[in-house]
Design a binder for these strands. Sequence first.
DNA 1: ACGAACGGGACGCCCCGTTCTT
DNA 2: AAGAACGGGGCGTCCCGTTCGT
Lengths: 217, 217, 217, 217
Amino acid sequence: VRARTVPPVRDTGHVGKREQILVAAAEEFDRVGFAATSIAAVARRADVAQGTLHFHFPTKLALALGVIDEQNARTFAEVSHDAASPTAALIGASKQIADLLRTDPIVRAGIRLSLERGEFSGATSSFYEQWIGGIVDVFCVAIGSGELETDLTPEELGGSVVPYFTGVQLVAEVRSGRADLDPAVAVMWRVLLQATAAPAHRARLLGVVADTFGAAG
Amino acid sequence: VRARTVPPVRDTGHVGKREQILVAAAEEFDRVGFAATSIAAVARRADVAQGTLHFHFPTKLALALGVIDEQNARTFAEVSHDAASPTAALIGASKQIADLLRTDPIVRAGIRLSLERGEFSGATSSFYEQWIGGIVDVFCVAIGSGELETDLTPEELGGSVVPYFTGVQLVAEVRSGRADLDPAVAVMWRVLLQATAAPAHRARLLGVVADTFGAAG
Amino acid sequence: VRARTVPPVRDTGHVGKREQILVAAAEEFDRVGFAATSIAAVARRADVAQGTLHFHFPTKLALALGVIDEQNARTFAEVSHDAASPTAALIGASKQIADLLRTDPIVRAGIRLSLERGEFSGATSSFYEQWIGGIVDVFCVAIGSGELETDLTPEELGGSVVPYFTGVQLVAEVRSGRADLDPAVAVMWRVLLQATAAPAHRARLLGVVADTFGAAG
Amino acid sequence: VRARTVPPVRDTGHVGKREQILVAAAEEFDRVGFAATSIAAVARRADVAQGTLHFHFPTKLALALGVIDEQNARTFAEVSHDAASPTAALIGASKQIADLLRTDPIVRAGIRLSLERGEFSGATSSFYEQWIGGIVDVFCVAIGSGELETDLTPEELGGSVVPYFTGVQLVAEVRSGRADLDPAVAVMWRVLLQATAAPAHRARLLGVVADTFGAAG
DNA sequence: ACGAACGGGACGCCCCGTTCTT
DNA sequence: AAGAACGGGGCGTCCCGTTCGT
């Protein structure tokens, strides 16, 4: 920090105080939740003065919203739309999100904050609506293309898959610190495909699941 | 309190300060979570002096553990074992727990606290292990009796159903304050039965779901 | 304690709850002082319910005064009046009190409380007046008998010896936990005798000091 | 405080919040001791918000150590080394410290805290070691120069004089609020000089005592 | 613009000393 | 003799401005 008194030619590794703070905040939020997170601890972890923190995020709530926004961006960025096999694309996205949940503090924190009801209602519920909406779209395509066959509507399906994934991730966190998240997500997909995959596609999609979270994983 | 200065013949509704406190604490924990709950608020809500509260629960953590314990007791009490149709019994239990989640503050709070990672690890993870264990047993019977047919092991199934229910309940809470919890649980069961029910039992079990969470629900 | 549910014929070692409490209180007062002593800790240490404690001592102040009174009694009981050599008697008493200060929690606590100014002013200053008064009497006799020769009045002498002993004891406590109290008291007497002993008695009295706190001590 | 919104030319009497707090704390510590001193009372007396106080002294212990440090500095600053007559210098220092004990709250509080055993052990015992060490040095010189004659070693003498003074001061405090501290210190010196002063210097040194704490005192 | 020191109240948890009832 | 109830702070510290220096 002191070395920056003379702003040098190419401060390598300089990622901007803002992001530095955001990551530190995410780590604390993920660790102990919103209410128990102290701004002082965030500043300490970010190696930043409290005044500096206050300059970028005037309030603790702003800090949380910043984390949630960033998490939304990162999460949705992972969803790749593949018209060929929408269900396979969904499986791939779930794997990538599971990976993020294991590695990216901002995503971890964002999810946790999104589930703490209360002050984030706005950002939070819109997050779920958005997510479910996107998945419903995928299911529409998948059903339309005959990849899935079910008497459930796409809305019912999407509205159940998102909570399913949420629960799997959350209980994995509580039980094992997300160590065995991948197999749990795989089981989820096996249940879902057994229930909804068209017979013609079932074997292939189960293969995708096995490959994605596979024996190697 | 004042009315008790003359201990009357039949102090109806006197449930003991301890339970009074437990309920008040549960309401607060459910509303804002552990960290944001203030002991003063609990005492106020329970209409009890802070010293009284401290006598029964020396610490905020003790308060939370008390709530979790009570919730465990109440939750498991709901599970009725019906040898005739274990799956139907499970569906019934899920309905009853869903009802508790809508009405019983202690159960609501207990679940919420169980998902807040950290200091409750002990009580919490044992809670999930216990719950999953019980459900695995039911699935063993159900598969053995031919009611369910699946290539998933009972362990996989139980370990996936519990998170499924947890997620459904949680997202329902965030999205609608659990107003539409019943239909969401019904969808869950339709997915699960479609995936695992033996053809000979499928229609009947779906009927149980419809009746349980049914049009009347 | 449990064994006393049936009050037996000869509860050996039964010293009365009152004294039990007094000792426990003294230990705590000696350890941390009046203000920092908690009544709960005293009750715990005395293995007595708080209600019981309150029955014997309605107030924390009463507890402290009880300790101080008992200490006064025990302290003054040690002073033996020996007309043959009043100074030697004084030396002996100082040794005995020094021993008490090392072993008797009530005396330790009483002294400590007596020096904590404030609420005990009454009991405390009377304690010093009484003590100094007694010693002045001894010095009167000693000077009258020609054992001591000094241009200091007995009042000056007594009023200086008591603080001297107090300081020696106190600093010994702070510096070494009273481990080397005896030699320090011996030095005190050597100073005092060098200043006040009549030449004819000096050697004998110094011998008394050496014997009392002596090489064996 | 309000007057400082416009930082004026000559903020007379502005001594810094830190010192302001230190003095207020000393007054409280002196009045009721460490344990019974409330931080709120200190803040109130210093006319400072509790947050401000916490900024300068994060803990009550830090506050006490701050007072003790300051007292050490002020006390040792009074000791003037006069090679001509070391004993006279010591007498003078004792007078000055006695004056401080009557007037300077920080010195009063520091002494009191130093005698409250327990958490201050570190700062406290070093205080006594330092003090005794300094006085032993003086006695070495005094004995070497023939001003004092005694069979006591300088260590014994120094290790006895400091407690003597401590006791005199303390009992004076308890008995009379230190009103008659000066005569008591004078008596102390008369005893000490009678015991240790070389005959050739005795009259002169007693004269110094009389002049210092003298008839005018 | 940015960083840092300083100041300010407001509670939060703990627990303390007491009283009241059994 | 004991258990239960009771308010009242104590300490810590948190989150937030504001004012300096750079």
